[in-house]
Design a protein around this nucleic acid. Structure first.
Lengths: 241, 241
DNA sequence: GATTATGCAATTGTCGACAATTTTACCGGA
DNA sequence: TCCGGTAAAATTGTCGACAATTGCATAATC
């Protein structure tokens, strides 16, 4: 398999794919205004390529859910609304719960030790209040048991779902809220996955419940930034400008 | 919303989208050989268009999971393997279970009556042994409560998951196996959704279990056609040639 | 003054051609 | 006969240009 290990290390053949990767990073880092742009002419000059690979890159980004292509109008970076978040979390929760259950059934020592490392990094980051490190270690923690589930389709589906809402510098501020509470829950998840005699249903509902709880916290966190907004609830660029 | 009602009635602007739609139907109907082709030159002559919209159509089909694009090699119609099916069903089961639970919480009379109609059609088709009618009514039954869940992301995700494995003339033969057993289960699902006092967890596990059970039956059904094959288990074209 | 019509500018959609790569066919040698 | 290498053919990737549509600004009319 070319992908499935979480790292895309296959030869970066294809100009469009390279541009897609660059744009993907740029979008996730937040290096784009409001929520709408990506003119072909601008990027053509910026990357020094023709429009063909650009359009291909746009399709690739659309597959990831990072942009929205409107015919005869253009390509726009997707603006995350409150409703998008409310829809995303339950779906993610159900699938990550399934992944945890599957991972428990096939758990091995290697994955377990990697998860322990991630958990340790999360713990260290928590006491140092290093939100960025905690965030990345936390991402890896989840990726590990998702991969351990051994279902490539599930892994790919979750990758897309997790990417959409994880506008990075967006989540940083969120985790700063209750980093210790998050750490405690993940320690419980680890204990359940570590114990071969854990009930599959318990693990599943634990992970699923954790994500659904995170939704409530996230929405509560969002409310603080919505005092001057109303209606559409763009959510996207208000945090950084 | 342009989509979400199950029917894409928006203006078919865009040559690439039209070609994608035509190819999508052709693939689902089985009008393609083995499991690999889609040469740009052939289709260019067949549709009378340039290669640009063709390549766009390929990306669209890849988004739906109907083809696989290999860089510098070409576009190939995805060949469904036994492993693909084994991976698809659990994911679909988890999400449809979630959809059923959400649908139950927001169920209304209109959707309920539509589901009753679909169920009636399934019942009639069952006694007449009309597999094709049963199959389509069955599809609509599922679409109805998935839509009732009111989660567009969930609906889109399931649409992709359900499309990948529902190579149509492929499923027909399967339902012929135990159409009555399938009907009974869907009647139970309907009864649970109809009753406002049903337990959410019961509905969810009922739907999820139904799909996971179908996987076993499906694999058993497949075994009959795998007596002369071994290893890769292509599954794709053997049924029609 | 507000609203609708019209022309222009900007952007996307499509096309044909050239470049790069892969596959295949042919040839030579062991 | 089989294996390796080279060259040709076929296919995909990329490019620049033209066509079509959309949006905006200006102007005209009620």
């Amino acid at each position: 398999m070319l992908q499935g290990n979480g790292i895309t290390l296959s030869r970066p053949v294809g100009l469009g794919l390279q541009i897609a990767e660059a744009l993907k990073i740029a979008i996730l880092e937040g290096n784009f205004k409001g929520g709408a742009q990506l003119g072909e002419q601008d990027l053509q000059a910026q990357f020094g390529v023709s429009r063909s690979p650009l359009r291909e890159a746009f399709r690739e980004l659309e597959k990831l859910g990072l942009v929205e292509i409107i015919p005869r109008r253009g390509t726009f970076v997707k603006r995350i609304s409150r409703n998008d978040i409310e829809e995303n979390f339950p779906v993610r929760a159900a699938l990550e719960g399934l992944a945890a259950e599957l991972a428990h059934a096939t758990m091995n020592r290697d994955t377990l030790s990697r998860m322990a490392v991630s958990l340790q990094q999360m713990s260290v980051a928590a006491v140092q209040n290093d939100v960025r490190s905690y965030y990345h270690a936390h991402l890896e923690f989840h990726e590990l048991f998702i991969h351990q589930a051994g279902n490539v389709l599930l892994e790919q589906t979750l990758a897309r779902l997790r990417m959409q809402n994880l506008w990075h510098r967006f989540s940083y501020q969120y985790y700063q809220e209750d980093i210790n509470k998050s750490l405690a829950i993940h320690q419980r998840i680890y204990e359940q996955l570590e114990n071969p005699r854990s009930s599959p249903g318990t693990i599943r509902s634990l992970v699923e419940g954790h994500i659904n709880d995170a939704l409530e916290s996230f929405l509560l966190f969002l409310s603080k930034f919505e005092q001057d907004e109303s209606g559409e609830t763009p959510v996207g660029a208000e945090l950084k400008r």
